[in-house]
Design a protein around this nucleic acid. Sequence first.
DNA 1: ACAAAAGTGTTGACTTTACACCCATGG
DNA 2: CCATGGGTGTAAAGTCAACACTTTTGT
Lengths: 226, 226
Amino acid sequence: MEINNPKYKNQGIHLISSIFTVDKGIVKVLLIKRKNNPYNGMWALVGGALYNDEDLMEGLNREIFEKTGLKNIDLRLCNVFGKKDRAPLIRMVAVSYIGLVDLKNVELLKETLKTSNAEWFSITEIPALAYDHNEILTDSINKLKIAILRTDILRSLYPLGFTLPEIQKVYELILNKKLDRRNFRKKLLSLNLIYDTEKKVNFVGRKPANIYKFIESAENKEIFRR
Amino acid sequence: MEINNPKYKNQGIHLISSIFTVDKGIVKVLLIKRKNNPYNGMWALVGGALYNDEDLMEGLNREIFEKTGLKNIDLRLCNVFGKKDRAPLIRMVAVSYIGLVDLKNVELLKETLKTSNAEWFSITEIPALAYDHNEILTDSINKLKIAILRTDILRSLYPLGFTLPEIQKVYELILNKKLDRRNFRKKLLSLNLIYDTEKKVNFVGRKPANIYKFIESAENKEIFRR
DNA sequence: ACAAAAGTGTTGACTTTACACCCATGG
DNA sequence: CCATGGGTGTAAAGTCAACACTTTTGT
């Protein structure tokens, strides 16, 4: 390929992440407020452009760190967006990723060089976003529903352990349906991928729940089939 | 973003497709022989660089047509490859796709402007390929095994109809295990997504098999759960 | 002792698997 | 009439879905 062929000149890659969490029974996504053009002042998904001297995942992690202060987030490829006019100025193709994090483990930077206000938004109340980020986010929410049926995405949400009622609520929220407590518990335990730490979480005025953890060596498995 | 920031300059997007078929009981993939530098003379997966004036899928279809003469291939996103040194000359990020075609419907161009010799290779006998295409192909073969569990990928393989023994062999080849004839038939028929055309295919010296077709309006469904 | 949520087993419905014989064709 | 693969049903095992009562805690 010729470097100066104008057909290929000035393309770039956007790395865009939809980082989700569950906060008091509400599924939320992390948005940042842009402080530069284009789309100055608008909310956007976390991400930015890949540099020439870094691998794809390096660039993704750098962008997330620069704009939110978050590190070591488990991210999975979601989709690729390549309409020729999806970005002004120069041609950009966007690669989108999904992450799911535990709020207790993250410390957001509110203000960075390039952005102000990183904030969690309920996925039912998303403002107009920069670029085609509304389209990317809608797609990511749909993919999250599929991804959650397999266990690996939950590992990153609960690195410190979780109770079964708690994890069940996450499923119910994301899948948007009620699940039977007994069947849920039976199913999850039968997969041999979590264990009872025998520790308990005390709530106010209720029976305490046992804390479970993922077995490190266990493979990713499908929890629900449909 | 500044257009002339050297951090973003001269990046490009490779669109790479692993186009599979099943030929006399062997799963094959389409490779082309390169006629230009870099990697002149080497075999490679079908694909090339996205132009600025086309959407992603337009570019993919154009590349496939230019290099093989094939059109209207059903392709699905597979993965993204973004190591910083994966291409010489300039920084390229590769987006990979999977397709599955019926040999009877395709007419390969053997010689084009940019390539010579488009040829089908058994996936067990793949030569050294240009770029990181061996890595991309290995990944695509693994994803094909997962994709085949859902029916939509089969539609493109058999647009003109198929017999149940025939389609069963495709599953057995790709999943690499024997399936019970009765159960396979029962399962596929129970999904309400194929119908018996009442036509028959005559083989030499055997009972003829019925020809089935996909019901156009039927949704994509999961055939096997594991 | 009460309110609030955690924990626990059984049954029937459905799905999956295993398995063996007859049928239609060409040579 | 034989060789070859196509077509068919049934029963046992396993998985899923529905359902109600007891336990533990804080107040």
